[in-house]
Amino acid sequence: MSLDQRALFVHAHPDDETINNGATMARYVAEGRGVTVVTCTAGEMGEVLVPDLLHLSHERDGGLGAHRRGEIADALAHLGVTDHRWLGGFGRFHDSGMAWHADGHAVAAEVVPDNAFWHADLTEAADELVKVIRELRPQVLVTYNEFGGYGHPDHIQAHRVAMYAASLAAAPAYKLAFGEPHDIAKIYWCAISESRMRQSLRQIRESGDTETFEGMDPDGEMGPFVTPDEQIAACVDGTDFVHTKMDALKLHRTQVDPEGFFFSGAESGHAFWGEEFYVLAKGRRGQVGEDGLETDLFAGL
């Protein structure tokens, strides 16, 4: 493999890239493929889970965004990713914050910060990504689905920006000052396999753990967080890199409880985190394995 193959990952906040695609990215770097991460906000409004860093939260002294800038730099370095961009430059778009809906998914908060990504002009934000797409000319783009995975406004906006930018970047008459048009061959949305989630949740409950994913029944309604297996097109096996992924995740120290569900409980045997699933939003499915899923996002290219 060579840097002639490049994947572009578009995420809302620091840590999203590692949780969703850490194993995929580490594997592709090891294979000599190009990996670029674009982060849309610095995550200034994120919840701080480490007691000795609570002073960084936006409710107290602030400074979380600058701190998370260092966290993502360390995490990506651990994954081997050397090309990281902030959409429009660091601080251009502010974390929008969120609230929880009664149904259990995220929604926009009643009060949204100034310069929030959620309120950004779509064309203005997309133009910043068009420049990156035309510079790098990736064959593969990865982002969230239209619900942002769980409803967070910044995730939804990242989806909108990524999809619109991909369309604009390919348009032959659109802002040629940004570079020669480029049509991304394949676009994927991050996914959690419904069957895999049910299996993991069942193991969690059988272990006696009733607190992790509290209220979720392995045989009940899963809500919007998971994707039906029939909609999933690809599963990248990153089990050889799962320890790299989990060690990188620990470097997002303000956001990850080292004693939390990522690292403890029945699902932390790492099988759950080593295989990463994707929905194909654009392009043709390439060669598949015995389970009918692509094993490589570049399949068919």
Score class of each variant (00 low, 15 high):
Met1Trp: 10
Ser2Pro: 14
Ala7Cys: 08
Ala7Val: 15
His11Thr: 14
His11Met: 10
His13Val: 01
Pro14Arg: 03
Glu17Ile: 03
Gly22Pro: 06
Ala23Arg: 01
Thr24Asn: 02
Ala30Ile: 01
Gly34Val: 08
Thr41Phe: 05
Val48Gly: 05
Leu53Phe: 14
Leu53Trp: 11
His55Trp: 14
Arg60Leu: 12
Ile72Val: 14
Ile72Pro: 02
Ala73Asp: 10
Ala75Met: 12
Ala75Pro: 12
Ala77Gly: 15
Val81Met: 02
His84Gln: 14
Trp86Ile: 13
Gly88Glu: 05
Phe90Val: 04
Asp95Lys: 00
Gly97Met: 00
Ala102Cys: 08
Ala102Ser: 12
Val107Leu: 11
Ala109Gly: 15
Glu110Ile: 01
Ala116Arg: 00
His119Pro: 00
Ala120Leu: 05
Ala120Thr: 03
Asp121Gln: 01
Asp127Pro: 00
Glu128Ala: 08
Glu135His: 12
Pro138Trp: 10
Val140Ile: 10
Val142Lys: 09
Pro153Trp: 00
Ala158Cys: 12
Leu168Ser: 01
Ala169Glu: 07
Ala171Tyr: 13
Ala171Glu: 11
Leu176Arg: 11
Ala177Phe: 14
Gly179Leu: 03
Gly179Ala: 05
Pro181Ala: 10
Lys186Ser: 06
Cys190Glu: 08
Ser193His: 04
Ser200Trp: 05
Ser207Asp: 13
Thr210Ala: 11
Thr212Cys: 05
Gly215Ala: 04
Pro224Asp: 11
Ala233Met: 09
Val236Leu: 06
Val242Leu: 06
Asp247Ser: 12
Leu249Tyr: 02
His252Ile: 10
Thr254Trp: 14
Val256Tyr: 04
Asp257Asn: 14
Ala271Gly: 10
Glu275Pro: 06
Gly283Leu: 03
Gly286Val: 08
Gln287Gly: 08
Gly292Leu: 07
Thr295Gln: 12
Asp296Arg: 07
Leu297Ala: 10
